[in-house]
């Protein structure tokens, strides 16, 4: 009677000790990895961390002081860069749209229970994995070589990646749909397209729209970055302004401000819309 609980306690303590040991070892390994990794990265960097740390604010200070002295230019510059901003936004929007539509198609083709050709679902999944894994910049640079500088290469590159990314999320959402409406439609002789349109789409629409909105936020950033390598839009203006250096810093500030404000606004709106879509039930 007396012996059993004490041996249980001992077992429990041993277990706790072992778990602590494993946890500690894992933590030590993690710290070691972080520290050595950071050292390695610092070694291969042009400037060290500590030498650079106090200079972090030098560049912002420089550009903002120049912009401050030329503050009268700023409203004009903001207006001047609005068309490029619009182009960046257009690239993001159209690639989300195209990627979303293609992603929908791939999602239907690769979801168990809904697929048109069930045997081919693994193939479509692999295709989406590959599309997701290719960095946008590679496709964009190759397409710039083929199509010349402009927004179309960026759009195609982002749409390619978006197709894979959204396709995966869409198909995960579609896996959880209630199949009863689909069966009901099948029983009255609806074909595959009709079953999808009236049985599945109404169920997944809120989730899908929310994913697409989130993608749009991500794509704005991506399209700004691609502009920096020559794909048009506000990133390209930023690059030229930076290359010019001193004297054009008011432009840099104007572009930073435009990008910052746009991203904040879009994030805010899409946050609200997504919360309403997923929680509020009232679709759109």
């Amino acid at each position: 009677m007396q012996a059993a609980p004490s041996s249980n306690t001992a077992d429990y303590m041993a277990l706790v000790q072992r778990r602590r040991l494993y946890g500690g070892a894992l933590l030590a390994l993690f710290v070691l990895l972080m520290a050595s990794g950071f050292n390695l990265a610092e070694d291969r960097n042009a400037g060290g961390f500590l030498e650079g740390l106090h200079r972090i604010f030098d560049f912002p200070a420089e550009i903002f002081s120049e912009a401050f002295t030329d503050w009268r230019n700023l409203p004009g510059l903001v207006l001047k860069f609005l068309p490029s901003l619009l182009e960046t936004l257009n690239i993001a929007a159209i690639s989300t749209l195209v990627g979303g539509l293609l992603g929908m198609l791939l999602a239907f083709l690769s979801t168990r229970g809904l697929a048109l050709w069930p045997a081919l679902t693994p193939v479509f999944r692999r295709i989406m994995d590959i599309m997701r894994a290719v960095p946008e910049i590679v496709i964009a640079l190759v397409l710039i070589f083929l199509l010349g500088v402009g927004p179309v290469p960026a759009m195609l590159a982002i749409a390619f990646h978006t197709t894979g990314a959204l396709g995966k999320l869409f198909s995960e959402a579609a896996e959880n749909v209630d199949l009863k409406p689909v069966e009901g439609l099948a029983s009255v002789g609806a074909n595959w397209l009709q079953r999808i349109c009236f049985g599945v789409l109404p169920q997944v629409a809120p989730n899908w729209s929310s994913y697409a909105l989130l993608r749009f936020e991500i794509n704005i950033r991506a399209s700004a970055i691609l502009g920096f390598v020559g794909a048009g839009g506000i990133g390209y203006d930023l690059k030229t302004a930076l290359q010019w250096g001193m004297g054009k810093y008011d432009q840099v500030v104007a572009i930073f401000a435009l990008l910052f404000i746009t991203i904040m606004i879009v994030d805010h709106i899409s946050d609200r819309a997504r919360a309403r879509l997923v929680k509020g039930g009232q679709a759109l």
Partner: peptide
């Protein structure tokens, strides 16, 4: 901003 302070590289 960071490349101005730390130069190019993985860090």
């Amino acid at each position: 901003i960071l490349s101005r302070a730390f130069g190019p590289g993985p860090m």
